[in-house]
Structures are given as C-alpha cells and as structure tokens.
Design a protein around this nucleic acid. Structure first.
Lengths: 388, 388
DNA sequence: GTCCCGAGCTAAAACGTTTTTACTCCGTCC
DNA sequence: GGACGGAGTAAAAACGTTTTAGCTCGGGAC
C-alpha cells in the first residue's frame, strides 16, 4: 500500500497505533532521521572511507540515540554469513566436554561470533539432522568433538564450503583441520611411570573400539608392554565404554582372577571416568589403593584432583584443545580455504597424585622373566606439578 | 548482468564456470525444474492445501532429488524468526550446568530448534553483549540460567517481545516465566535430617549474597535453627562462593575454633561443590567424616555418588529443570504472549549417603539448653533411594 | 448467455541489509 | 572553457524466502 513513500516519511512511523512491541528501527528509519540514504548509513556504520567524517558522526550519534542495531538475519542473507559456528558434541554432560567448550567459547567470543551447541547423543540421525540444520543456517564454520560424521554429511559440509575442524577423532578419508592429543605419548608416560615404580603386571581398560583415540591408546599400551617386556596376558585388557560404570565392571573383571598373581598390580584406564569407576570398584572390593593396586587415568578431569579421589592421571589440556580448534577454525574462515589442512597435536603430561605407588612386596616377590633389553628406558619421569 | 532472465533459465546454471562450491540450489532453481512458480514450490513444501496433490508430489520429489533445503536466513528474514533459542549460562564448566543444558537441549531438539550457548563468565558486559547479539539474531526465545540480567537488558528483551524464562534466580521487578527449586524445603530437609540424627550445632556454608537462591537457602537454615532451637552462634555461618576452594577454606574457618565444643558437628553447604571442598578440608585436617563431622551438600551433582565421595546431599533435579524451562519457553513462543507468567517450582529430595551420621558421643555428651518446644518435628525423614 | 465461484496457480511485494553502479558537484588541469 | 577526476552521496539490485493479491479457467446456477 505505501508504494512510493516519501523520503522524509519515517519507515516505522504512523501506522503502528496498535498493540505489541513498537517494531525496532530499521536502517531506513535511521537514514530518514539523518537525512541520508540507507547506503550511506550502511557505509558509515561499517566505517567505510567514502563517507564524510561529519556525516559518519551524525549517523553514529543518531544510531546510538535510537538504539539501532542491524538485523543479523538481513545482513546474513545479503552477506552469506551468520557469525555463528556450530559445535557438535556427543554428550555435554560428560565432564570432559564442558572444559573444551569453554575453550572454544572463549576465542569465538573474541570475534563476537555465536556458538550453536549440538548435542548428538552419539545418534547418527541426530548428528545428520544437526549438520543439515547448521548448513541451512549458513554457519561460518563447524567444530566436531570426539566423533566423526558420516561420509554423506562430510560431503555436504565440504560441498557447502564450510570450514570444519575435527577434535580428538580423525575423519578417515577426509582432509580437514584437526586438533588432538598425542595419545600414544600419554599412555606411554603412564606405563613408563608405573614400570619405573616396579610394576610388571599392568591392566588396561580400553575405550570404545572404532574410535581412533581409543585405538591409539590401546596400541600404546601394547607397545609399552612389549617394549618393557611386561606380562602380556590378554585378560589384562578389558573393554570399557568411557563411562564410570564400565570402569567399575571392567575392574571387577580384572580382579576376578582366581590366583592373586594373575591380577594386575596397576590399572591404566583410557579415561578418568573409567579410572574413577575403577577406584570405586576397588574400594568396594576392599582392595587398597595405591598399596594393593595403583590406578592411573587419562584426561585429568576437574574432580580428579579432589583430595578424596586424588587420581594420578595423564593431563589432557582440555581448554587448550577448544582454544586451538576455535583458532584453527577462525583462521580458516578468515583466510584461504585452499590451504593444506593443519593439525595441532597437544602434549599430554603425567600428573602424579595419590593413586599410584610401587607394588606391594608380596606382588613383586616373585619376579617373572627378566627382560634384558631396555636399559635406556628407565625413568625419564618425575613428579610433575598438577598445573599441567 | 543477467537482467530479465527467461523463466526457463535455471537460476544457478551457466555462469559458474569458475571455482569453488557449485552454489546450492535456490527455490528458483527448484521452481524452474518443476515448471512452476516459486510461490507454488513454497506452498507445496509447506504443505499448504492450495496446491494440487500431483504438483506437490512432483515438487517434493524433485526437491529431494536435487537436495534442496530452504535457506534459514532467508526465511528467517521473511518470517521474523530464527528457530533458535538463546541459552545464557554463567559457567558451562560448573558441573551443575551441563545437566541442565542437556535437559534444555532435549526438548528444544524435538522442535528442531537450535541452541545458542552464551557463557557469560558472570561478567556484566559479556552478558549485555550476548543479549544484544541474541536480539539481533531474532531468536525465538531465551533462557537465563542462575543469573539475572540488568534492568536495561531486561527491557530490551521485553521491548523486542522475546519470551524469556529465568532459571534459579528470580528477576526482581520483572514478570517472566520462572523455573526453580524449593530451596527452603531442600535446606529444611537437610536440617531436619541432621537434627533427627542428634546434631545440635550445625554449620552452614552459604553461597554468594545477592542471589535469591543463596538468600533462600540461608534463610531456611536460620529458620531451621530457630525452629529446632539449635545453637545459633554467628560463627557457624561462613561465606562461600559456590566453588570447591571456597568450601575448603570456609570449612577451615568453621573448624578453627579453639574450644572443640565451639565447632559444629555437622556442616550443610549451599551446594555440592562447596560440600566437596569441605570434605577435602576435613580430610586434610584429619577430621573423620561422618564420625567426627557430618557433611550435607545441595544439588547432587554427578560425581557426588562416587563411592569415595559418597556425599549425602539434597537432590536438585537438574535435567528436569532444563526440561521445564524449555517447555515453558516453547509454550510461550507458540502461544499467547499475553498470558500471565508461570512458575515451575521443582521438589528437592534428600539423598542419604555416607557423609552423614549421628554426632560422636563426645560431641553430644554435653547437652546445652533443652529447647522444649518442638516435639512434633522429630523425624519425618527416612533413608531414600539415591535414584530420584 | 451471464454471473459467480472455487481451485490452482502466478506476479509481485516484502523482509532489512550490503554492494555495485551511477550521479552530482566542484576544483584542477590543460 | 571543456575534460578529467575524486569525493560524497543516492538509486537500485541483490540475497532467498513467504505471503498477499490477483489472475485464469472451467463449471454450475440462474
């Protein structure tokens, strides 16, 4: 109806005698108010050089005055961006995750981008639906934490030209930026440390198969067993699923052996949650930690340092993980999409606390074979500060 | 350049001999492909009744075929919505928070809306900036967890007509939907339980002042002290800030009293984190829990049930909190904005675990005054299952 | 035969920006 | 005195939808 509206007529004026909110000002209102064209307002607000200082100041002043804020949606449509990045996690309630999220948020916030949190519950269809939704929203970039996307989703992301950073899981066959930790080094640290204490029979609670990090950690355990010539009974490796409960039951399995000498004197868990489960099980079984059995975790989640848990563990720099992922992503968004993919591999570190000690005299009384091979691999470890 | 393009010409065809992604199909492409107008395509996809079944089927088929997905941005601009809701939290790394977030995500996901996570770090300017950003994005609604917004921010949200649900903190002077827990009942449960065990001298670690929940919990403590005629030494109430460290130092303060009888036989903390801090401090001080001192927390965070912590606490239904908040918000979004504000007050429950027991004989040996008044307030509590 | 109506579709406006192109001064250079 | 150029601004196109208003066509009522 209001075709051909006069230049001075306020775009929002007049007609809203009705109810509800007074319809926030558009750039047209602001332009009319300043007596310039919308284009000039846009340029002024964007700080473009082709607008007279006097005009710019006027625009800025009036803008502040009426509280003008450009519609993200409109500029998003025009510019093909959304100033938000998608963060796909499996389970935000897992204590490992929020710390990483915190790291991501911190750097994303600096560029005033928003974080869209997608909790997939590790369900394939939820993952797919979320990825679709993110693409529909024209997100600037995407971070996928501790899981991999289907090939089809992956292709969609690539086809859309959306930068993607994967964290903790490599996407096989796809090249994108990656942030992870040196899993092998971490487990090796734990193993070398336990060996230096005198342990020869070390159990391992592995994580879910089909995940690169779980594989890496298990492989590192096996390599360490071989390198140090430790007992390599297959019953020393038990399956967990990264949950506390699984750590509990895995430990009961480990300790169920009839002959006491068949039981491990130390347990390494592929993550802290399972290690805490192990502590719980051992407590229930009346097995003393660390005097009877040592326990070492992986991740160093927040509560691991509680005096009553006091878990010896491998530190996973969680916040730094999120930080690096976000940085990589932002660089990729700003810079050339064609650059070769980059990886950031963070360094684990050993944090010695109260759940580890030399094995009891009884346990080491009966030395098995003496592997004569590794004289140089003694103890490069020392007690490290808990601060990472 | 391509002014006046012919109706049959594909909107995306021809010109992109260049590099990069092949530009996802628009509704124009789809319309051309189906030989109908964009309006019809839109109607067909939206399931409007004014399109012939045959046409609709064709459109749906072709849409699937070329993988057409409408741009969220474009329809957002047109429809004034964004299908995303803002979730403002103080610190996602606080173990209480992710569980609530999980609850929110769950119901929001059912409507295929997205969650924009805003971590304010409790900084006023970050809070303000995030709220601004959310409004610019035309979010459908907003949930604010465990904090209050400035009056100015609040007004902006109201002016924008964006539904808002506050969780755990009432916004004084503003009427909006609210989800919380009955703090008073929770603390009363804890106090009644401890009294029923025989405790007469109970310390309280309060949370940050200036927060309604902290006030409520403190008030409930004081009421219980009065109602049961307990020792009401002001030194029995110490300040914490909801962190584990503060629980630690607060407990050291409580236990620093020279005369043993001046020390509490039980400690109630305004949240689990501080309770865990208390456990740590007591452990360090060589004070046995629960034989020397009982400890009761509030929230029942995930790790509280670990066998080595085994914290007696008041359960705060966290996931249900997020669930209710999201439900309230979605109803408000869908329904009439003018309806009177609603509140959901969740019920706390006592979870008895290992950190509580009757006071030691030594501590109760010297009964102080016998308050003759409350015979009916004996023990309405019984050991409850930890499930809640 | 005319009128009306509904079914099915299209044209075009609208959403609120940014960006490209074009225009208007005005001073300077030749 | 006209051409040129640059500074500052304006007009209009573009982004990809949804929605409103209007069009066309055929059939039924009168």
């Amino acid at each position: 109806m209001s075709r051909n509206r006069l230049p001075q007529e306020e775009a929002n004026g007049g007609t809203d005698a009705g109810q509800g909110s007074p319809a926030r000002p558009t750039i047209l209102d602001l332009a009319a108010l300043c007596g310039v064209s919308p284009a000039t307002v846009s340029n002024a607000l964007a700080g473009k050089p082709n607008v007279k200082a006097q005009t710019r100041d006027l625009v800025l002043r009036k803008a502040r005055e009426i509280g003008y804020h450009a519609s993200s949606t409109a500029r998003g449509l025009r510019m093909g961006r959304s100033w938000s990045i998608g963060l796909v996690v499996g389970d935000i309630a897992n204590p490992f995750v929020p710390d990483v999220v915190r790291g991501v948020e911190d750097v994303v916030w600096r560029e005033r981008k928003n974080l869209i949190l997608c909790n997939t519950d590790f369900q394939a269809e939820k993952k797919t639906a979320y990825v679709r939704s993110l693409l529909d929203k024209q997100i600037d970039g995407m971070i996928v934490l501790s899981q991999i996307l289907d090939d089809q989703d992956m292709e969609r992301v690539e086809a859309a030209g959306i930068p993607l950073v994967t964290v903790n899981r490599r996407a096989p066959g796809h090249s994108c930026d990656y942030v992870g930790i040196d899993n092998q080094a971490g487990v090796r640290m734990a193993m070398d440390y336990l060996v230096s204490l005198g342990h020869r029979r070390i159990g391992f609670i592995k994580g879910l198969f089909r995940s690169s990090s779980a594989d890496d950690r298990l492989a590192a355990y096996q390599e360490a067993v071989a390198a140090h010539g430790l007992d390599s009974d297959p019953s020393l490796v038990v399956q967990g699923d990264y949950s506390m409960e699984s750590g509990d039951s895995a430990t009961r399995n480990l300790m169920a052996a009839q002959r006491p000498t068949a039981r491990p004197t130390a347990i390494v868990a592929a993550n802290d949650l399972m290690a805490l489960g192990a502590l719980g099980a051992l407590h229930d079984l009346g097995i003393k930690v660390p005097s009877d059995v040592s326990v070492v975790g992986f991740d160093n989640i927040q509560l691991a340092e509680h005096p009553l848990l006091n878990l010896t563990t491998i530190n996973h720099p969680k916040r730094e993980t999120g930080d690096s992922a976000a940085r990589l992503l932002l660089q990729r968004i700003a810079g050339d999409r064609g650059d070769p993919p980059r990886s950031v591999i963070l360094k684990p570190s050993l944090i010695v606390r109260g759940t580890s000690a030399p094995p009891s005299a009884a346990a080491v009384a009966k030395p098995r074979r003496r592997s004569a091979s590794q004289p140089e691999k003694n103890q490069a470890e020392k007690k490290q500060a808990a601060g990472t």
